[in-house]
Amino acid sequence: MPVAELAFAPGIDAYEPSHRGEPILEVRNLAVAVDDGLAVENVDLSLEAGRTHCLVGESGCGKSLTCLALMGLLPPGARGVSGNLRMKGRSGAIPEKGPPEGLAMIYQDATASLDPLMTVGRQIVEALPADVPRRARRAEAEDLIAQVGIPHARARFESYPHELSGGMNQRIAIAIALAARPSVLLADEPTTALDVTVQARILDLMLEFQQSTGLAILFVTHDLGVVAQIAHDVSVMYCGEIVESGPVTDLFAAPRHPYSRGLVECLPRLSRQTERLESIAGIVPPLQARPTGCRFASRCTRADDLCSTQRPCLERRGNTGAVACFNPL
């Protein structure tokens, strides 16, 4: 990838391919089974230090389930998970229970993800690595509170989640995630429920941490605006599968999959006021009624006979990116 294409990325110097190390986290063939079938299938992901990979798609496409599966936190409805995980050179099957070391996650509803009966300070202390001595733990937690931009850290240490706003709680959630000193952070729509002004500050905060620690971030969102702001790489998910994957500039400038194009086009923009917004006709087929061929075929304007009988696989196209489509744009 040419350096120039990446140089714009907010606050992060360009990573040249030759300078880019091995991926920190590689996922191969992730599948999650639920009662009605496979909710997530054939998902490959690769995360690199200091880079943000965005996972985009509509509700029910399996974005959150992908994160939860990686964390070993499958919801009660899930039957099982399969796939391989390679992290810092070590590889193995995806663990069914408990997160692999070095992985931390923040959730959409921060207030609900915190324990209402415990002070936020104690919740941070709890997440610190075991080798931090007992005397230093409180000071370290207060440090983290200050680092995530909350004033009066000492006083806030004693606060309960209900005493703080949604934005503040999301900062606490970030502090908890960072307390374990992860090398990979999974963020499941952490700003969707927040005001735009608060969202902007939370995203800035995550970027600052990424710059100073080289954190790899997997960021799940359905807001293409957020993708444009923070992503280096993007994977577009539809019906449990990744349909397009590549650098963020390619997705916005020249999306290859008709679904990706639809997503980019239907974003309302401040700089442009058109008579009509583009929209993708139809709805996402439910899990029980997924078509045998391409899962997007019934909503696609480019679909032909092949699309309704055969499933396209994710294939490399050109130098960058991959797309799962028989008739790519």
Partner: peptide
């Protein structure tokens, strides 16, 4: 409020 909106295209830096 306007500055806090995410950009329309990658590369349009938002000013905090």
């Amino acid at each position: 409020l306007i500055d806090a909106l995410p950009p329309d295209q990658p590369g349009q830096r938002r000013v905090p």
